[in-house]
Amino acid sequence: MSFKEYMQQRYTTKMYNPSRKIEQNKIQDLMEVLRLSPSSINSQPWKFTFVSDAETKQQLSKVSWLNTEKVLDSDTVVVFSRINSLDLFEQQIEAELPGRAVDYYKEFIKPMPEDQIKSWFNRQLYLSLGVFLSACAAMGIDATPMEGIEPEQYDRILNQLDYAAVVAVAIGYRDEDDFNQPSKRPKSRRDLEKVIETV
């Protein structure tokens, strides 16, 4: 199957089959996919938490707005968090990145206000989100990206101090009665000529 076909078939899953589990080797592959995700200057200002523990999922479900059932019934919830400590981030890049990357950060990013720097971190995180959703589609795993969460409550439940939850993704296998799957509700996208321009 081509990548385009995977994209035609993927959709935001609304109902999961809680009795069907993701194979552990696929979970490990998804972890590696996230590790390999691109980021500006290879900054990697992130952490990804895979939550399959039933009690933790129960707690997260209560602070997930309209996503309660997805959190509970999915196999795993992956929490995408950006680094929240600028000092910790600077220590990380000084230790791990080449000088030219550190110099770029110091010249172009560091002078910005803190909220803009964290917004830059968030944008890197969303690059990994796109890669992750695409990987799930290619591996036959259903996924639900969720901004409808209470990030500070996620941080409290996960005991995060130096990182801040931004978005989460429920993953698993769809319930056969899921109304949102393309076979029941055809995918709706704007026409190609309305979103693509060639020059």
Rank of each mutant, 00 (worst) to 15 (best):
Q59Y: 08
T49K: 00
S64A: 14
Q59P: 03
L72S: 05
E69D: 10
I41Y: 04
L72I: 14
S37H: 00
S43T: 08
A54C: 05
A54I: 14
K57Y: 10
K47Y: 00
L72D: 05
N42W: 06
N67D: 07
S43L: 09
E69Y: 00
S39G: 13
V63A: 08
L66G: 11
K47A: 02
S39V: 02
W65H: 11
K70W: 00
L72M: 11
L72G: 05
T56F: 02
T49A: 04
S52Y: 00
T56R: 12
D53F: 00
P38N: 09
L66M: 11
S40H: 03
T68L: 06
W46C: 01
P38D: 06
E55L: 14
P45R: 09
N67E: 06
D53M: 07
V71L: 05
T68K: 15
L36S: 12
K62G: 04
N67T: 07
K57S: 04
S40M: 02
Q59A: 15
S61A: 15
T68I: 04
Q59C: 11
S40P: 06
W65A: 15
K70A: 10
W65I: 15
T49Q: 03
A54L: 10
S61P: 04
N42E: 06
E55H: 12
V51N: 03
E69L: 08
S61N: 09
D53S: 10
